[in-house]
Amino acid sequence: MKEFERKQLLERVNREGATVGAEIPDEIDVQGEEIALREFVFEIKRRDTVPKGERDRVEEAKKNLRRERLQRLQRIEEGEIPYEEGERLAESIVGIDRALNALEQLRPVDIEQEAEVQETADRKRWMRFLKQALGHRDGSNTSGRGGGRP
């Protein structure tokens, strides 16, 4: 591959918005293992959040995809491959980036933490209600009696 072709491919994969319109590959070989990438991403994305049991699986997939992306990018950077192979690698890198973007947008669900946040909010609302009901407007009266006003 010629130097200017290598630079074009590297610019293409590192360009802002390179994933716009790109498709997630149906299957991809990651670390020697064939993965149905599109199916995996859509299965996880359909849920909108990552359940606790799936979190490790998704994190492992993201780690492996990042590693695979780096290896493919390095092959282009070295430039000792035919241009056609470089094009295929660049296309697959953009597809990997698209999959990573989709997986990064997922929100983890931690039911225990969500319940704790809800309980804290409920407690604060209850305390505000009690202060209002007992006549404590600013919370400065700690005597336990009605607002201390005539």
Rank of each mutant, 00 (worst) to 15 (best):
Leu100Arg: 04
Gln8Gly: 02
Gly144Gln: 10
Pro150His: 05
Glu114Met: 11
Ala36Ser: 12
Asp48Val: 07
Met1Glu: 12
Arg47Leu: 13
Arg47Thr: 09
Gln8Tyr: 04
Glu80Lys: 07
Glu85Pro: 00
Arg38Ile: 00
Gln113Val: 01
Arg55Phe: 13
Met1Asn: 02
Gln74Trp: 12
Leu9Met: 03
Ile35Arg: 11
Leu103Gly: 05
Arg72Asn: 05
Gly21Asn: 04
Asn101Cys: 14
Arg88Ile: 08
Leu134Lys: 07
Ala36Asn: 13
Arg123Asp: 11
Arg125Thr: 10
Arg46Ala: 08
Glu85Asp: 10
Ile93Gly: 00
Gln118Ile: 10
Ala90Lys: 02
Gln71His: 06
Glu27Ile: 11
Phe42Asn: 15
Gly135Lys: 08
Glu80Ser: 14
Glu116Lys: 14
Leu70Glu: 01
Asp97Asn: 15
Val58Pro: 11
Ile28Lys: 08
Met127Thr: 09
Pro51Trp: 12
Glu78Thr: 10
Ile93Cys: 01
Val13Tyr: 00
Ala133Asp: 03
Arg57Pro: 02
Lys45Arg: 02
Met127Ala: 03
Leu134Thr: 10
Ala99Asp: 02
Val30Glu: 03
Glu59Ile: 15
Arg149Tyr: 02
Arg98Lys: 15
Lys124Trp: 08
Gly17Phe: 05
Ala99Lys: 08
Arg38Trp: 10
Tyr83Lys: 06
Val50Glu: 07
Thr120Val: 14
Glu116Leu: 15
Thr120Ser: 05
Arg123Met: 00
Glu91Ala: 09
Arg72Gln: 09
Glu60Lys: 14
Gly32Cys: 10
Glu84Asp: 15
Gly139Pro: 09
Gly53Trp: 03
Arg137Pro: 01
Glu3Ser: 08
